[in-house]
Design a protein around this nucleic acid. Structure first.
Lengths: 129, 129
DNA sequence: CCTAGAAATGATAATCATTATCATGACGGG
DNA sequence: CCCGTCATGATAATGATTATCATTTCTAGG
């Protein structure tokens, strides 16, 4: 991974993200970091953008349009119910191994991937989503 | 798929999306539909939201933050370069079959999935992204 | 057909996340 | 110690999305 140099803000953002169990919003990130050091909201976004391009951070957009960020190493994926909107984490990545073979068959250098399933969770499909 | 009843707007949105080769923005969709019928931007968003919940439409967010929509049936995925931002479509879905087995091992009813790879395309990785 | 109630629509205003701007502060090299 | 460069914070600006509300369309009875 192209990890070279991190600014103070980038370090703080990445560290806080790594402490989270679930992806969080930029606003939440801002609030958390502010408890420890002086930081501006714009700087949070700048750091997120830089970290994304370094392949350290990824984001996903929920059904309701919220953008959530998380540290890449977690490799966590979800099944999201189109009816109630709840997201259920997978405990293992279905692509394990597959990504590896892709790495060899293509000239594209893969850092990470995003994967999300959409459909109906059991309760919603029972009540006739 | 829970396809029951479509309003005029939903029909127009879905039809135009199905004609597209690539995902497009809500604004572009609005412009295209307006050439054929009177429609409001808010209605486009409402239709997109409804179609998403019907499992007919999905969206993805580019590196630059643009939200793009496409009809679900295309099952199209991308490799996106973290350096230049370009997206390269995969010609086949790496999850083919895998999703099927997931369907049986879980009580979650899967309609579709999103999948995207991030890393460096060859030119960018050569010049030392 | 005609009509009342419900749902959909269009136009516009309001919201809110993200980005641009710009003056200030930190930092490394000479 | 000073200069140039880059990072930062505060705030204004932007732009996509959502809420509002009056109007139109649709549907089910009658």
């Amino acid at each position: 991974m192209t990890q070279v140099h991190c600014t103070r803000a980038q370090t703080a953002v990445l560290q806080v993200l790594q402490q989270q169990r679930e992806p969080i919003s930029a606003q939440a990130l801002y609030t958390l970091i502010k408890q420890q050091q002086r930081i501006g909201l714009a700087t949070v976004y700048r750091a997120l953008d830089a970290l994304k391009r370094m392949g350290q951070v990824q984001h996903r957009v929920t059904l309701t349009g919220e953008t959530l960020y998380n540290a890449v190493e977690q490799d966590r994926h979800y099944m999201t119910c189109l009816d109630c909107g709840q997201s259920f984490p997978l405990n293992t990545c279905p692509l394990k191994g597959l990504e590896l073979s892709l790495k060899h068959s293509s000239s594209f250098t893969i850092y990470y991937h995003t994967l999300e399933f959409f459909g109906l969770c059991e309760p919603c499909s029972v009540q006739g989503g």
